[in-house]
């Protein structure tokens, strides 16, 4: 109990609080003096409390697409990373494609996906999945290859087979990397999902933001922005909890 109030703990709590406080004051100053730029916080909160159902139902659409995209993109990245560890040909073939994918503004593919798949959830899931794919691929690859040579020697000296080396060494050893990847991926999927909703849909947090722009409803816009940011934080938090439960070393 007593060490809750150590100097470093207070600092860790206080420092960000001060920054947030200053940001809040700055925000309110702008909101009061330049009304067209930022709405005051009170108005944003009021807007949210006025119709939480509207926001949560839209948020759920976005989160759903993000989670499905994260699952598909993340899992395919892991599977591909595993194959790439074992097949040099695949590694050589896929890395350039993955790099190309990484530099392509994935959101810009959105219109093409809408043309191809229509006005439904699929284009948004694909954008989220593509966004989630790359960070997971890179982390999974590093994790699966980050095996200490000396440990590998111990396994090889007793003729452990590939499957054993994979399940007893590579996979558990890569878990910390997979979780770092997952935290990046899930954020990327969330951003992908939101931004892809700027087009071709009337549902989701992204669509809510666009709608707010058309009606110059600053309050609605900022509620949507804050909600998506908070949601990303919560998703990262959930991944961290699973990580803590699974990695105890």
């Amino acid at each position: 109990m007593t060490n809750l109030f150590t100097k470093s703990n207070i600092l860790r709590l206080l420092a960000p609080l001060i920054v947030f406080g200053l940001l809040y004051l700055g925000w309110q100053w702008v909101a009061l003096n330049l009304k067209s730029i930022l709405p005051p916080f009170g108005n944003i909160t009021a807007e949210f409390l006025d119709r939480p159902g509207f926001y949560f139902s839209n948020l759920w659409v976005t989160v759903q697409a993000a989670l499905i995209g994260f699952a598909i993109g993340g899992i395919s990245a892991i599977v591909l990373a595993i194959l790439m560890v074992y097949f040099d040909f695949l590694r050589a073939a896929i890395i350039p494609v993955a790099l190309l994918l990484n530099v392509t503004p994935i959101v810009a593919i959105s219109p093409a996906l809408i043309v191809a798949f229509g006005f439904n959830a699929i284009p948004h899931i694909i954008v989220a999945g593509l966004a989630a794919f790359f960070p997971m691929l890179i982390n999974a690859m590093s994790g699966l290859r980050a095996v200490e040579k000396e440990t590998l020697d111990v396994f090889n000296a007793m003729s452990a087979n590939r499957t054993e080396i994979f399940f007893r060494l590579r996979l558990p050893g890569s878990l910390p990397y997979l979780f770092s990847g997952a935290k990046l991926s899930i954020t990327a999927a969330m951003v992908g999902s939101v931004v892809s909703e700027f087009m071709g849909t009337s549902k989701g947090i992204g669509a809510t933001i666009v709608m707010a722009t058309t009606f110059l409803n600053l309050n609605q816009m900022w509620v949507a922005i804050f909600l998506s940011a908070v949601t990303s934080l919560v998703l990262i938090g959930v991944v961290s909890l699973v990580e803590k439960a699974l990695i105890r070393w």
Binding site: E148, E150, T151, D153, V154, A157, M158, S159, R168, L169, P172, G173, L175, I247, R248, W249
Partner: peptide
């Protein structure tokens, strides 16, 4: 036959 035991320079234990 697992008839060779290898003890490397670092302990190379599995941390988990």
């Amino acid at each position: 036959l697992k008839n060779i035991a290898w003890v490397p320079q670092s302990s190379a234990l599995l941390p988990w």
